[in-house]
Design a protein around this nucleic acid. Structure first.
Lengths: 154, 154
DNA sequence: AATGAAATTAAGTAGCT
DNA sequence: AGCTACTTAATTTCATT
């Protein structure tokens, strides 16, 4: 019912880079009719292979010019402590991604703020609490999205 | 010429979550006519406020089930060394993001592989070279996208 | 079962007030 | 900006393999 064939893979790979392509463009690229392509795309959305389609907003316009990686150490406690924190951080506008990780840190956040001062405020409000044992900030000078080609499966 | 007003901000915020909304839906949400909304969206694309629109593919389907953060230390050398490495990594299918950062590490990569063994291979091929002084791998147990609401600007 | 071609419906675009 | 007409794309139907 939810098998993915090579046409589907091709479509996913195209839409991953540009979700605004028309049925005709997709048809051209994969070698099927426009109708068949769009039928497949719809199915891929239904079965969750395509989770969602989003617009990438320029960080400048979004007013978030400073990006940081924050490694958080959470003090030992109830097992759901990390999940509670995760939910708390997910609700903050400045937090763009949350990684639950192994190693010295427990959570790694990517944070975007309007300025370093805004980030300083952010840390004071959110990291100086009983829930956070320690944190380390890594300033991102530049970030790049990688755009993988058809994927030479490792 | 490229001023962003509050209607534009609202549109960006809507499309950031779901880029497949129709003019009518946008109109309903922001309080303008469908045509006006789409005109604005088109302009936002032209001025680069909307960088692009992409489909988010389920990691399972993409066949990349293991996610890692890699902190790379680059030996001192020509100033363009980091940029050369950045470009090299950007071309790899397993690398999804590249951060050029301050601190102990110089580059932080997010890497996605089909398995841990695949990642082991990946490190052998790409990190055991003269260009990499050392690296540290952080295994991501779970990752979450944060979905900021209208943004309580910090 | 899924495709392609044609017909229908809906969306996006352009012109005018 | 809004409204309306025009154009293009998406969706559905249907005959075909």
């Amino acid at each position: 019912m939810d098998a993915i064939d090579s046409f589907d893979r091709k479509l996913l790979d195209l839409l991953r880079h540009d979700a605004r392509q028309t049925g005709r463009q997709l048809a051209e690229a994969v070698g099927l009719s426009p109708a068949a392509c769009l039928r497949r795309v719809q199915r891929l959305r239904e079965i969750g292979a395509i989770e969602r389609e989003v617009a990438i907003i320029s960080p400048q316009v979004a007013g978030q010019t400073v990006k940081l990686l924050v490694m958080l150490v959470i003090p030992p406690g109830k097992p759901d402590r990390i999940d509670r924190l995760r939910r708390k951080f997910a609700a903050l506008a400045q937090v763009t991604t949350i990684y639950h990780v192994t190693g010295k840190a427990d959570l790694v956040l990517t944070v975007e703020c309007a300025s370093m001062e805004a980030y300083a405020n952010f840390t004071e409000v959110h990291f100086y609490s009983e829930d956070i044992a320690s944190f380390e900030t890594i300033v991102v000078l530049r970030s790049y999205d990688a755009h993988p080609e058809p994927a030479p499966k490792a």
